[in-house]
Amino acid sequence: MSVLEVVVRSVAVLAAFLVFPLLVGQTEHKLMAHMQGRLGPMYAGGFHGWAQLVADGVKFAQKEDITPRAADRWIFRVAPFVALVPYLLAMAALPLQSGVAAVDVPGSAVLVLASTSVGALGTLMAGWASANKYALLGALRSAAQLVSYELPLVLAVASACLAAGTLSLSGVVEAWTPWWLIWQLPGAIVFLVAALAELQRPPFDMPIADAELVMGPWTEYTGLRFAFFLLAEYAGIVVFSLLFAVLYLGGWRGPFDEQLGWLWTLLKGFGVAILVIWFRVAWPRMREDQLQRLAWLRLLPMALIQLALTGIGVVMTQ
């Protein structure tokens, strides 16, 4: 790989990393507004407020960057980057089309899972280093939630990889058949729910419950550092939606996938992202004990049953 190619690939991933989360964010603004009988942003940029998030970004950049006096300065300042950078790495490993991925490695499924699990550390660091009781409580809740939901998530991905016989995401898409929509359905449901919980999106937003904990681990953050946490959340939605599309919906498979494959991947991922937004509007926040009960009594057995089902299927068809 030449230097030029490395630069081009890196710039492409960075551009996707900066554009897609904004796209999902804007969709959330408008879609949520219309679901609730509002119009949402209408002013910024002229046409239906398309530039709202750009304006928000400018606003965040102008705000003062405050570090509380009692905070652990270094960890407080580094935490947003720890939350953000792993998603950049994860996005680089997602394949768009056969042979089109910024980094195509044999174990890309594990790479994506490993890097998203590192991102969780950023939330913990932020919550602890803020020297704020609300932030600490939020971090505790998010740690409990992340540890519980990591297991079903990994098991669901393991099931898809087992069915495909490879740990490479492109390999999973190559092996995908429409039958997977039924065969891998329990795993897909487990993955979607666990991914929502990993992202701490409603109905799993107990760690940042604004009525109880102000903003949870992010309470003390202002300006760009706060914006980085928001960007990490939306980049997380993009990564998990694309991962869902690649693992369970066949990625780039579709009509004319020689030329239009990348479009199929993006459209499927976008559809999953809309589902994620819809869940936020549709369901109220779950209580802490309900969260844990769902993870350990529902999702984990379901993921194990799916794993057994996949194992039986693989053995029978080979």
């Binding site: 490993a114 969780a120 550390l121 913990l124 602890w128 505790l140 740690a143 409990a144 540890v147």
Partner: peptide, 9 residues
Amino acid sequence: GAIVVLVLF
């Protein structure tokens, strides 16, 4: 992803 998160918790 899991053990250090548990330690921090």
